[in-house]
Design a protein around this nucleic acid. Sequence first.
DNA 1: TGACAATATAACCACATAGTTATATGCTCA
DNA 2: TGAGCATATAACTATGTGGTTATATTGTCA
Lengths: 109, 109
Amino acid sequence: MAKYKQMSPEALALAASRFKVLSEPMRLEILQVLRHGETSVNDLTEKVASTQPNVSKHLRVLQDADLVARRRSGSSVFYRIADETVFKLCDVVCDSLKHKFKEQAAIFA
Amino acid sequence: MAKYKQMSPEALALAASRFKVLSEPMRLEILQVLRHGETSVNDLTEKVASTQPNVSKHLRVLQDADLVARRRSGSSVFYRIADETVFKLCDVVCDSLKHKFKEQAAIFA
DNA sequence: TGACAATATAACCACATAGTTATATGCTCA
DNA sequence: TGAGCATATAACTATGTGGTTATATTGTCA
C-alpha cells in the first residue's frame, strides 16, 4: 500500500481553516473583484451588491487569513490580493466540478 | 487592468460548498486515511479516533460531494477516494501556509 | 428465525457565523 | 473645531452544523 506524508493534527486544522475562509460565496466574489486590482471598501460594496458592514466583516476574515492586505489612502481603504494561490485553488475546484458534471451528463447521453 | 474570467454566482456557490466540505479537520483526516486505500467505517472510526456515528456523518458529507465512493462487502461498507483533486487542493494550501509562516519567521530572524 | 455485528439515521444540544442595524472611529476639508 | 464621508466594530437574530446518545437498518451466521 502506497505511503503518503501524513499531516499533523495542527496542520490539518490550519488547512481546514484556510478552506473555511474560502467556503463563503461572498468572500470568493470579493476575491474575484480584487483580482482585477486593489479596490476600496466602497467600490467593493457596490460591486458585490452587499452592505458595507458585511463587506468589511468578510474583508476582516480574508485579512486575518493573510489572503488580502490593506492600504489606507485618505479616508478610503484599499484592499488587494495578498496570496495568489487562492486562484489556483479555485481553478482546481472548478476543473473538478466541470469533470463531475460532465460525467453526470454523460449518464443521460 | 487585466481581465479574468468571472465565475457566475452559481459557480461561486458550488465552489464555496466544495471548500466547505474540506473545511473540517476531521474530514481532511478521513481523506488522508482513505488515501492509503479503501477503508471500512469501523477501521476509519478507530484511525481517526472518533465515534462511529460521527464518522458516518462526515462520510455522508464527503459522498454527497462525490469526493468518496462506497462499496458494500458483507456487513461492512468500504469507502474510497473518488476525486483525487482534493489532495492537489491540500498541497496548494500547505504550500501557501508554509510560505506564509516562513515569511513570518523571517521577520524575527 | 433469532442473535449479533456493522452501518446509517434521528433527535438533540452547543456553538459558530452570515447578515442586519446602530454606532464608533478616523480622515478630510472648510 | 465642526461637518461630513469612509470604514470598522458592536449587538443582535437566524440559521447551519459538529458531536453525542439512542435507535433503526442491513447483513451474517448459527
